[in-house]
Each structure stands twice: as C-alpha cells, then as structure tokens.
C-alpha cells in the first residue's frame, strides 16, 4: 500500500543560515494517527511547512500518497488539509468566508462547498459567530475556524500543528472525539502537540524530533512498555532527561 506520507532525508536551511531541519525521514501509513513530538524549535513546524508548500525544502523528497510534493505540488496539495499553529488569516474576514474561500481554492463547486461549510460551521459550534470578523472572536473560536478551514476539502491527510494550544477543555475533548471519528473513517492524521496526554490518547504511531532529526519513531505501545512511559522516553530522546532528574533532585 502507498504510504500517506513518505519523507526522505528532508533538510531545510533558512536564508539566514539557520538549519531548521537537519535530516528527517519518516513514513506514515494510510489510516495512521501519527504523533509528531519535539521541543520548541526542533523542526516540527518547518517539516510541516515543507510538506504543505509554505516552505521550500533545501533537499530531500516528500511524497504524499505517492505524489511528489515539490515536482507535482498541485496534485499533492489536493490531498492535504492544514491547521497551522499560527492564525494565518485575514483578520477582517468573517468565519464563514474564511472556510468558504478555502473550499473555493480547492476547486469545490458552490453547492458542495456550501454543504460542507454549513456542516463544519455547525460541527465546530460556530453558527452564532459565522458572520463575525475573525479578529472579534475569542482564541478558542479562532482555533475552531482554523480547524474547520483545514477540513473543508475533506483531506485524505490532515495535518494539525498544535491544534489544542490555548483552547478550553470542552473544545479539546470535542476535537479529540471528532479526530478519532475522522481517523476511523479513513483520514490519516499527523498531529503535533506539547500535550503528551493528547498524543498518548489519540496516536497510533509516535515520532520524536530533536535538533532537526528524528530521534525516536515507533508504535505507541513501544513507548509504554518502557518504565516512565512516553514522558520519560520523550525526555530521554530529546536529551532533557538529565536536566529533568537534576531539577527533580533539587
């Protein structure tokens, strides 16, 4: 079976000379719920930007369901939905338009788009806020709009970059349920988060990235058979275990 995402020796060096991704290779199978963990600045978002076309990879290859994300970018992007960490929208546009426009960019016909936008606006409980400008919404509502926008094209690969950062418990729980539902229906999901609990609860496979390289990658069960579970594995993999122990000892 063709993997949903196949990254081989991805490297990204910014114009400033900063090496954001040193050498990342990973494979995500279709139907997987993949957790991508790592400290701030480890290269998670940059990897996601390279997958989705926001950044140009310096070298390496990225294939989405077998389609080269650089050489055949137009076809590759049809398969992906992205909820970025930052709110990258026109703050004066209203919630409905933000979701609708994205459907339009993906070439969805008017009737199909309306059905999908209505469904997502309702699903994310945005009905009373649909005609409000994005900048007038609270942080949690803004996050809902971004999530609805990511899902408007019904992507085969859904990429969520810290989707629950700064949202209330209610939305977090609701989003978890919805993501599990989508995954059961066949959507492959790549999730980054700083909440280990979230990764533990949702993901089937976990990769840990540190200093631009994958330092651990395997099925979730592997991490739980070790003493200390995911937290300890994460701290060990990112080289923070020693600091952690030292702080705890103090």
């Amino acid at each position: 079976m063709t993997p949903a995402l196949e990254i081989s020796h991805l490297r990204k060096v910014y114009r400033s000379g900063t090496v954001a991704v040193e050498d990342v290779s990973l494979t995500i199978q279709e139907g997987d719920f993949f957790g991508f963990l790592g400290p701030n600045g480890a290269g998670k978002s940059t990897t996601i930007h390279c997958i989705t076309g926001i950044s140009n990879p310096t070298s390496g290859t990225i294939r989405i369901f077998g389609v080269d994300a650089v050489a055949n970018y137009r076809e590759a992007r049809k398969l992906v939905g992205l909820s970025p960490q930052e709110f990258n929208v026109d703050p004066f546009a209203n919630a409905r338009n933000i979701v609708d426009w994205m459907g339009g960019y993906f070439g969805m016909h008017s009737a199909e788009r309306k059905r999908r936008v209505d469904m997502l606006i309702e699903r994310f409980e945005l009905v009373p806020h649909a005609n409000k400008a994005f900048r007038e919404l609270s942080g949690g509502l803004k996050r809902r709009v971004i999530l609805a926008r990511a899902m408007v094209n019904n992507p085969k690969l859904l990429i969520l970059d810290e989707p629950t950062a700064g949202v209330d418990v209610e939305l977090r729980m609701d989003l978890w349920r919805y993501l599990q539902e989508l995954n059961r229906d066949g959507t492959t999901i790549l999730l980054t988060s700083h909440y280990l609990e979230e990764i533990e609860r949702l993901c089937k496979t976990i990769a840990i990235v540190a200093k631009g390289r994958i330092v651990r990658n395997g099925p979730k069960e592997e991490f739980f058979t070790e003493p200390g579970g995911l937290e300890r594995a994460y701290l060990a993999a990112t080289g923070k275990a020693a600091d952690h122990v030292a702080v705890a000892a103090k």
Partner: peptide, 9 residues
C-alpha cells in the same frame, strides 16, 4: 494569509 493560497492546489 498568503499561506492559504500556497497550500491550495
């Protein structure tokens, strides 16, 4: 918001 265009097909 240019990213909306960049990630689109």
């Amino acid at each position: 918001s240019i990213e909306e265009i960049l990630v689109a097909p």
